[in-house]
């Protein structure tokens, strides 16, 4: 077998082994590549930074499922840590029934790190079915939509909900999503109630949301693990958190994997053009 045939027929198991090694090795030998903060991520950070302590609440809608947890959970924690570090009240909820446990895990983990009290500093509303009805309902009266929190407590009995009726009392909605939920937030909360919205989405979805970034309907966006690592850096640089930066650790592995995929593309094309040339020569 000549070099050309070998190059064009790399065993797929070899590719899988190389990708596996590219993911695992950087966790043990980190490259510590510098993270460059993009404008869209900085805009979200700056907005939350501008909310006065104990001022209007931030509604964090954790609309994602376990499949995308490795990408979205780090940005979820980073945003919640930022809010709690600045004493911003947080209202947590989810539009995805598979996100109930994840949302609770994220909000409780980050609240405990800052000694925040449930019901006073934050609340977790859990899930209600009917995406459009829930988003529109919050615009009228959030207590009518949910009635109780995730644990069955009456919302009127929670101090954090005392002055919270609708979007007028919410400074920012952050939707962390692995599906088209951000579009629903734009269509109903932003268009109908002019609610400011930021989103955090998986890397493959990020390209879909640029039209709304350009129009200003999203104030900013965190795209994939890269967006999460940028937010982690901003939170750490501001002195709000010294917790392990899981997204930043993952970026080294992602860098190596991306380079490897580019190399595979180059190799595949070299083999393709060389085989075409040799076929032309033979003819």
């Amino acid at each position: 077998m000549n070099w050309l045939a070998r190059l064009s027929n790399i065993d797929r198991r070899m590719i899988f082994v190389l990708i596996g090694a590219a993911v695992i090795i950087p966790f043990f030998r980190p490259l510590w590549l510098p993270v460059h903060v993009t404008e869209h991520v900085k805009n979200v950070f700056d907005f939350i930074e501008s909310i006065p302590p104990d001022g209007q609440a931030v509604l964090v809608s954790m609309d994602y499922s376990p499949e995308t947890l490795p990408e979205l959970y780090p940005m979820n924690l980073a945003i919640l840590r930022h809010c709690f570090a600045r004493d911003v009240r947080v209202v947590g909820m989810t539009l995805d029934p598979r996100g109930i446990g994840i949302g609770e895990m994220a909000i409780k983990t980050s609240a405990d790190e800052y000694g925040k009290q449930y019901g006073e500093d934050y609340v977790y509303l859990g899930f209600r079915p009917g995406i459009v009805a829930v988003i529109l309902g919050i615009g009228e009266d959030i207590k009518r939509v949910f009635g109780t929190d995730n644990y069955g407590a009456d919302l009127d009995s929670l101090p954090v909900m005392a002055h919270l009726t609708n979007y007028d009392d919410i400074s920012l909605v952050v939707t962390l999503a692995s599906s088209t939920y951000p579009e629903s937030w734009i269509s109903y909360a932003n268009s109908r109630y002019h609610q400011l919205i930021a989103c955090g989405v998986t890397a493959v979805m990020a390209a879909d949301f640029y039209p709304w970034l350009q129009t200003g309907q999203f104030i900013g966006m965190l795209g994939g693990l890269k967006g999460a690592s940028e937010y982690e850096l901003l939170v750490e640089n501001a002195g709000y958190s010294r917790e392990r930066k899981t997204a930043t650790i993952g970026m080294d592995a992602q860098s190596v994997v991306h380079v490897l995929i580019v190399l595979f593309i180059v190799l595949g094309n070299i083999a393709y053009f060389a085989s075409r040339r040799s076929a032309g020569g033979d003819a």
Binding site: I10, R12, I15, F16, L18, I19, G20, V23, S65, P66, E67, T68, L69, P70, V257, L260, I261, F264, I265, L267, G268
Partner: peptide, 17 residues
Amino acid sequence: GATMFSLLAFFMASAAY
């Protein structure tokens, strides 16, 4: 769930090549 989603990286690399 995370494993299922992560498998994409392996198939993407193979498909890209």
